[in-house]
Write a protein that binds this DNA or RNA. Structure first.
Lengths: 183, 183
DNA sequence: TTGAAATGAGACACAGATGTATCACCCAGT
DNA sequence: ACTGGGTGATACATCTGTGTCTCATTTCAA
């Protein structure tokens, strides 16, 4: 039976997001295949991480597309985006912390594209008057990644119910913890 | 000249928060000492991480104390806490992602104390009517850690000015991105 | 100046992960 | 039944990081 590459990557992401130092053998076992087979599909650990990176970028861009972040009020767009990003959350949680490994050398230009689209979304919200202007788009972008990661981690650890993932992240990112008369 | 243990730990935290897989040799070089000397002070990588953990817990508890989180309105307490946590931020950023390595085995009970105090703060805010009740204290606690980590990482990478660290985190955590009539 | 303590550099063996090759097996298509 | 591609298991060499040791040098105090 031929190996399902996507399934292997997905399993690897789930494992590595919890244990970043997992061995190639552990990854293989988790995916239900042999280490040799894993090696036939991904030349090495580096290639595996690169493949995960590529998959993550594709899923994140797909989330940006399906959320149609250019349409409607910015806060609604963010809400849609968080919901659409949920499937890619474990992947993001892993790569956001792992990316620093590739210091210096060529970062995948996909991250720059993602950042640009996210920053543009927050900037649009500011220009529309929906978002406050004293928090820079770059920081809101970072906070978005961070909260997605925290949410994925909290859900994986059972500290937050999976059903609440989208709501908790979007509400905190948009409205914050303070009680507001707008609510 | 005798090695400044605290300084070594601080340098190690800064390096490891950016590159979690850094070698003992890299840690030593970053601290400006030899690998052998590093080994004389910390029996091994594990002991180093444990020491970082201990130092982080102590600094975080000190931050909780100096911020006097039991006093005054909860939102003001959070603001003080974020400001007081800034020195420990790189440390926290590293350990929050590293902690998952210690799955199963004895977690340092200090984390439970920290979590309990943080959760109590958010719960108090909810009971006072300062914080919204639809976001669980556990999630707010997670988000606090996540945003501290994101902030530390963004500052280390130059994407956010160090001066803005405290303000950006506290404002986002408390007020969110959405423009509010309360501001 | 002298001497003890600490450090840096290097050597060494060891453990673990990695990358590669080989072989037997299973299963699908012929 | 046959055959070939893909797989799992295993073995092996290699590499990297680790932990320990030694020794020359430096530093600080007496």
């Amino acid at each position: 039976m031929s190996v399902d590459r996507t399934q292997v990557l997905r399993t690897a992401a789930a494992l590595l997001s919890r244990k970043a130092t997992a061995t190639m053998d552990e990854v293989a076992r988790a995916a239900g295949i042999g280490r040799a087979t894993l090696h036939r599909h991904f030349a090495g650990r580096d290639a595996l991480v690169r493949a995960l990176e590529q998959m993550c970028i594709e899923e994140a861009e797909a989330a940006l597309d399906t959320a149609r972040i250019e349409e409607g009020p910015a806060d609604e767009a963010v809400r849609r985006l968080v919901a659409a990003s949920e499937p890619a959350a474990p992947l993001l949680a892993f790569l956001v912390t792992e990316n620093q490994l590739f210091e210096g050398e060529g970062q995948n230009e996909g991250w720059a594209r993602l950042d640009a689209r996210l920053v543009a979304l927050f900037r649009r919200g500011q220009e529309e008057g929906t978002f406050r202007i004293d928090l820079s788009p770059a920081w809101l972008c970072e906070a978005f990644y961070g909260l997605i990661g925290s949410g994925a981690w909290a859900v994986a650890d059972g500290r937050v119910a999976a059903n609440d993932f989208s709501y908790m992240i979007a509400e905190l990112l948009l409205g914050g913890a303070r009680r507001s008369v707008e609510k």
